[in-house]
Design a binder for these strands. Structure first.
Ligand SMILES: [Zn+2]
Ligand SMILES: [Zn+2]
Ligand SMILES: [Zn+2]
Ligand SMILES: [Zn+2]
Lengths: 127, 127
DNA sequence: GTATAATATGCAAAGATTTGCATTTACAAT
DNA sequence: ATTGTAAATGCAAATCTTTGCATATTATAC
């Protein structure tokens, strides 16, 4: 993979990013560097990176699924479906559960960015 | 909601369905009964039903997210990302974990159809 | 290095989904 | 029943995403 490849540019974009990004947002950011890049190429690259396990793709309750680097800091989330408030769990806090499932099923778990939904304490009070 | 409403028709479609369906598939089935229905109406109705908790929406690894009645038989899945093989867990087998998260976070968990991914034993052998 | 095969990219078109707005329908209050 | 309000629907347009195919790039084998 040469350093100017799309995948590499995507990688850099995700690396310098705290939050999760939609495919569209990633495309926009890649276009800043590679102005002639085609959307389909970005979408296909993302798909590839997800399949290879470098990147996670998740529905976080927003208008579109979001992508994030997996390698950087493995974690999981609990999202309030009413106000969008987001808790982050370190991988270890969920690992027990996933290991249990792995042991009982024989499947090797690949889920690397679990997203649960709920209603946060504040929103529970609201009614 | 009158009995010929779109939401009601969608409900019937999902009720008489074993497997998960994509929005497109649901639209096609609704159209059989209500030939003049507009796609956007079906999409919006589904969104509503999901928001109200009657229907689950999940990425099961296929080309599009899939919908399913939640009320019928609450459950969760583990899907092989290589061959698509699908295990189904009764709600009880996952409930402990969700209850734990609920207790520790104060969030009231609403996730009603959890989908985990992994590699099944057969595909692990394939190398 | 040259040839061969596999992968990545761009482009155009198709397809799927969402959005804005006007209209209709359902519900509730009078 | 009449009126007023909120929700649901259809239609057209916009947007987002995927797909097929040709070209270019990269990797592998000789
Ligand atoms: Zn995350
Ligand atoms: Zn909240
Ligand atoms: Zn299911
Ligand atoms: Zn498998």
């Amino acid at each position: 993979m040469r350093s100017s490849s799309i995948a590499n540019t995507i990688f850099k974009v995700l690396e310098g990013q705290e939050d999760h990004l939609t495919a569209k947002e990633i495309y926009e950011k890649v276009k800043v560097t590679l102005s002639a890049v085609d959307p389909s190429t970005v979408y296909r690259s993302l798909e590839r990176m997800v399949h290879q396990g470098q990147v996670s793709v998740s529905d976080m309750g927003g208008p579109a699924v979001v992508y994030e680097l997996v390698t950087k800091n493995p974690h999981h989330h609990l999202v309030c479906e009413q106000c969008g408030k987001k808790l982050t769990f370190k991988n270890g806090e969920i690992a027990d559960f996933l290991n249990e499932v792995q042991k009982e099923s024989g499947f090797q778990i690949t889920t690397n960015h679990l997203v649960l939904f709920g209603i946060c304490p504040a929103c529970q009070k609201k009614k």
